[in-house]
């Protein structure tokens, strides 16, 4: 059986005044049914750009999907006419974002916004839609949903808004949920609630989740597979249990130590330097300027992705030398 979502050779470029920015370059991955896959990276890694381009949600004009195929259930989303793509969005693929205020319309009640999705994709209207909206809110653990449907987004707390977004995303029982930094703006105790809820719903609906995050600890606790992006390219991919215990790319290893506040003598372990400017990408490996293992060939040529073990790939010439 083929994977639910297959992304092949995806490249997304932005035209800017200072030249073309290669935000995502030659990205391939798959998401199996019922699986949570995490796309991990820091700002500028291209993780959100990649996620948005799957459903062609990037602002038109400046950005361009330069190459690649995105197949959902065998259908190429990048070649789909706009009408059919709209049916895919919301019905087969649900999305939640970091900032629910951006996705919710401040002038409509939340009941109306959920009902709108139900009308568009399921043809539900009137009392049936309202009843279903209440049911959905109850399902995402919003207390007193009968009263909440009459409230506006600004009446709700951040955690509650994120639940409302989830109710909208899940209204049509999608096969795939794309969650772009869903808990970054939330407090840790609320984050734990929302992550637990995503997990429960995933099991109940048999849904797959593509989680976009910068937080490796969240990845550890929710995902099965992880893809690490750096400066628009995949640098490592594999099962979470492996990647986060025995990484084989120096960037992943550094990120991991930073995320655990690992000590390096009496200082915290740090990755020196900063992410290269998208306008001045170094030749060769993009991580080389910050890498302790970098040698001449790293600066000359970009290392290809190599399979180190079945299901574990890394783009580093010296992957074998990296100590866990």
């Amino acid at each position: 059986m083929t994977a639910l979502l297959e992304v092949e050779g995806l490249s997304v470029h932005f035209e800017t005044a200072r030249g073309v920015v290669r935000a995502v370059e030659d990205l391939s991955f798959a998401v199996e049914r019922g699986q949570t896959v995490a796309l991990v990276g820091e700002s500028g890694s291209g993780k959100s750009t990649a996620a948005l381009s799957l459903l062609r949600l990037l602002p038109a004009g400046a950005s361009k999907i330069a190459a690649g195929r995105v197949r959902l259930d065998g259908r190429d989303l990048l070649a789909l006419p706009p009408r059919q793509l709209r049916d895919v969005r919301g019905a087969q693929v649900g999305m939640i974002f970091q900032d629910p205020m951006m996705a919710l319309n401040p002038v409509y009640t939340i009941g109306r916004q959920i009902a709108e999705t139900l009308r568009l994709h399921l043809g539900l209207a009137g009392p049936a839609a309202e009843a279903r909206a209440i049911e959905l809110l109850r399902r995402v653990q919003v207390p007193a949903p009968e009263q909440r449907i009459h409230q506006y987004p600004h009446n709700l707390s951040g955690g509650m808004r994120q639940r409302v977004m989830m109710a909208i995303a899940l209204a049509c029982r999608p096969a795939l949920l794309i969650a772009d930094e869903p808990t970054t703006a939330l407090d840790v105790t609320v984050q734990a609630q929302v992550l637990a809820l995503i997990d429960e719903l995933k099991a109940e609906l048999g849904m797959a989740v593509l989680l976009i995050t910068h937080d490796l600890a969240v990845v550890w606790e929710t995902a099965q597979r992880v893809i690490v992006l750096y400066a628009g390219r995949k640098v490592e991919e594999g099962p979470v249990g492996r990647i986060l215990t025995r990484p084989r790319h120096p960037y992943t290893a550094g990120l991991l130590r930073a995320a655990q506040w690992a000590a390096d003598g009496d200082r915290l372990a740090e990755i020196p330097g900063t992410v290269p400017s998208p306008h001045a990408m170094p030749p060769g490996c993009a991580f080389a300027p910050r890498c302790a293992l970098a040698e001449d060939r790293c600066r000359r040529q970009a290392p290809p992705l190599r399979t180190l073990e079945p299901g574990h790939v890394a783009a580093c010439f010296r992957a074998e030398e990296i100590a866990p």
Binding site: S157, T189, A192, L216, T245, L256
Partner: peptide, 28 residues
């Protein structure tokens, strides 16, 4: 307990980890 951490014994979701208090309910 709510803060996710890499390397907790099982990497199951926190609410399934028996040794860990359940997440707080409700908002502040």
């Amino acid at each position: 307990a709510a803060a996710p951490a890499i390397g907790r014994p099982s990497h199951d979701p926190p609410h399934l980890d028996p040794g860990r208090p359940p997440p707080l309910s409700g908002d502040v």
